[in-house]
Design a protein around this nucleic acid. Structure first.
Lengths: 312, 312
DNA sequence: GATAATTACTAAAACGCTTTAGCACGCTAG
DNA sequence: CTAGCGTGCTAAAGCGTTTTAGTAATTATC
């Protein structure tokens, strides 16, 4: 039992007293401060004392000194729920924990005052935005006929899968008002060019479900040549599938539909949605190291893969 | 332009100097400390100075003094995504912000060391667990033949809706391994008694979709009298619906199915899922005030309601 | 007219840590 | 023999608050 009375914090001073050195020395030892010459004997004594007393550094005090706390904030929009973001968060969280940092997730669109409040209350080391973090670090990494990672790679997987199934006239289904839609489209065009596919079309999918079928009907009329749809996410893909059903169309015959993100709803749908997995956790780890300003070269991320089901 | 050189923090001391009083006085004024006699004139002077200099209290320093930071942590399990939790978080966040607190959301199951790390890094004022917070404050509030709020009220809405449609032999669909399943079942039994319905049955829905149909077939065989299913969540409800489809059953004829939480997938499904809305944001506000130890009596939460669609 | 109470403030300690400056010692270089 | 340097440490300042204890001046009490 380490505690004497009501559990009082074990402080640096306690460790110092127990090991017969000054606070500074304890701090130097415990933080492995470079350019400090401290004998092995003292080092060992301090470490033992710290362990025995069960010393844990007080993050708040440390933050006061250092100017910022060991917290990283991730802002994430309301509509970004799903496997990808969940695993991304998990990876981010785990990797940050390795370095003594904690992840603070904020949901919804952060207002300016909101962000300021956070900054003043906890002084985080870094503030991430999911949409940006998702892209960062997975720039177009051309490694022999493709991209290894990230959004561009995901589009590549979708298109390649579709083109292997003899689809060349492909439309990209993007959610209306999606901030990332622009960049996805850009990647899609690059990918199409790389695979020597004809020019792609863009289908903008309304947010409210009632309007989806009408939009789809319009699109079909304007682009009767299209045979396949690569969707922004599984949700978008399922919206398309549901809209098609209302129009009496069926996948993959009328349109082959492929999603992205392995939603748990994908296989419950009729037809079962063909979709993509991605190493979101790996991307999260990457983002963590980037946020901390660490070397990212040794983080290995796995390439995504297609989960072939019925819709394409 | 308030800043002189590179933006240095405006501290209490700066305000003190500017208004010609001591730091203590500034602190007393700005925090409205009771039992301190400070003249109106001084008060005004300090406040003006603070405003003009753009003083914002440094949360970290404050936390060091107060022993904990103005942060509330919410732990939420991975599988609790959906409208309800989203809005709950939103309400919690908003309400906490009103009192200068920030919400820190942690996803996944917090391990012990995880929780300790958080405690040491940021010393939060309170730590909430979604599953518990969801129940807290919505105890059975019997107010004239029903419950006003919370889980019990939601079950009541489901059962009442079903019984109005001449269903009296009802099964409760609970996700396998759901920690909250037990309490939901207890509430369901109480509600059934209240509505003078026969004893309810429980259908345990497997996590992996492949096993759902088999489980459903089993259940149908054992309880052929059942005509309606009240599900734990929309996800569970959709699992049931998808399983029924695989068995060649259809809703609402074979079983009437009602969900809970107004998932965005509910109306994309065939048949469209009948479900429930709840004032999750209100419940979040309630939880916030509870966490801060404030009076909760003036938080008004709205009663949930049924969104009738096709499945029931 | 002396004592007590109230008003209006201030000084300084404390929270627990990091970090700079510096001290004492022994050793080497010139 | 002295200056300079590396080693192994310590003292103390400082981060920005809150809060306790105290002080000086004024007002009330008998």
């Amino acid at each position: 039992m380490a505690s004497t009375r009501t559990t009082r914090r074990v402080t640096l001073r306690d460790v110092a007293e127990a090991s017969g050195v000054s606070q500074s020395t304890v701090s130097f030892v415990l933080n492995d401060v470079p350019n400090q010459t401290i004998s092995e004997a003292t080092r060992a004594r301090v470490q033992t004392a710290a362990r025995e007393l069960g010393y844990v550094p007080h993050g708040i005090a440390r933050a006061l000194m250092e100017g910022s706390s060991r917290i990283v904030v991730l802002n994430i929009e309301r509509n970004r729920e799903g496997n990808y973001s969940r695993n991304f968060i998990r990876g981010l969280d785990k990797e940050l924990a390795l370095y003594g940092f904690a992840l603070l997730v904020r949901h919804g669109h952060p207002s300016k005052s909101d962000a300021e409040q956070i900054a003043n209350v906890i002084a985080p080391r870094a503030v991430l935005h999911f949409a940006e973090a998702y892209l960062t670090g997975h720039e177009l990494e051309d490694s022999g006929g493709g991209w290894k990672n990230g959004m561009a790679a995901h589009v590549l997987l979708q298109f390649r899968y579709l083109s292997e199934r003899r689809h060349s006239l492909i439309a990209l289904a993007l959610p209306e008002g999606e901030p990332l839609a622009g960049i996805r489209e850009r990647f899609a065009r690059e990918v199409a060019e790389m695979l020597e596919l004809p020019q792609i079309q863009v289908l903008s999918v309304p947010k409210t479900f009632e309007q989806v079928a009408a939009e789809l009907a319009d699109f079909r009329e304007q682009h009767p040549e299209i045979t396949a749809i690569a969707a922004f996410s599984d949700f978008t893909a399922l919206q398309v599938l549901a809209g098609m059903r209302d129009l009496g169309m069926s996948a993959p015959d009328d349109w082959a539909v492929i999603g992205f993100d392995e939603s748990e709803y994908a296989e419950m749908f009729t037809p079962k949605l063909t979709t993509l997995t991605a190493d979101a956790e790996g991307h999260g780890r990457l983002a963590a190291r980037q946020a901390l300003g660490l070397d990212t070269s040794d983080v290995k991320t796995k390439i995504g893969r297609v989960i072939a089901r019925e819709s394409a």
